[in-house]
């Protein structure tokens, strides 16, 4: 199995090389995105992704992604993937998990018992997938499935830079985070891809507090 994934990784790297070689001819435009809260403070861990027109979106080179379970937490807390990506749930914990999502139409149930093989979950629909564990009620995670190969997550400075192939036409930049309470319509900006752009999303509404695995994991006696 390890050998198989090694070959797959090799193939992906090779594909990446070809893509890079192809891109060296076409100039890429970059878009700098920054997300600021109503207080002007940068907001990290925000998903940023380019949506329609589809032609603007470069295909992602990585066809698999990983949402791990470590110390009864989903790691990463939020994962952004392209539609059609197979997401592995390896379960690095000693204990069993029973992962589910009720977010239609991407809902699924996946028991993660030790020693039992399980296939990755392929998300075929764009949207936010809220993850939970039916054994550990405090576990919470998000998979943001986007109809695009161009996406990223803001850093501690609230910034992320996305690269696009240059060409005619506009593209739409969207942001999403479970902490953001602003209307989703106000979180979309249209940018021409003729030249590099800098976008600042200034949020109007106060953010929800960040997820605290400790506070939601408060355990009532189950013994």
């Amino acid at each position: 199995m390890l050998k198989g994934s090694g070959i797959r990784l090799g193939a992906a790297l090779l594909a990446l090389l070809f893509l890079t070689a192809g891109n060296s001819v076409v100039h890429a435009t970059s878009v700098d995105v920054q997300v600021l809260g109503p207080d002007g403070e940068p907001v990290s861990e925000v998903a940023v992704f380019v949506v329609a027109p589809a032609a603007a979106a470069r295909m992602s080179a990585v066809a698999t992604a990983t949402m791990d379970q470590i110390d009864t937490c989903f790691v990463p807390h939020m994962l952004v993937v392209q539609k059609g990506t197979a997401v592995e749930f390896p379960n690095s914990d000693v204990v069993a998990h029973h992962v589910y999502s009720f977010s239609k139409p991407n809902n699924f149930v996946l028991p993660l018992y030790k020693g039992d093989a399980h296939a990755p979950i392929t998300f075929e629909h764009a949207g936010v997938v809220i993850l939970g564990c039916n054994i550990h009620d405090g576990m919470l995670g998000y998979i943001v499935v986007v109809d695009s190969g161009v996406f990223g997550i803001t850093d501690v400075a609230g910034r992320v830079t996305l690269e696009l192939e240059a060409g005619a036409g506009d593209y739409l930049v969207n942001i999403w985070s479970p902490r953001i309470r602003d209307d989703q319509e106000s979180l979309q900006k249209t940018v021409s891809r003729q030249s590099d752009a800098t976008l600042v999303f200034g949020l109007q509404k106060k953010l929800r507090p960040p997820h605290d695995a400790q506070s939601t994991a408060v355990k009532w006696s189950e013994y």
Partner: peptide, 15 residues
């Protein structure tokens, strides 16, 4: 069973 009430007795055998 014990009611789901204690934040203190969370160990094995309700200790």
């Amino acid at each position: 069973f014990y009611p789901r009430i204690s934040l203190e007795n969370v160990d094995a055998s309700w200790s």
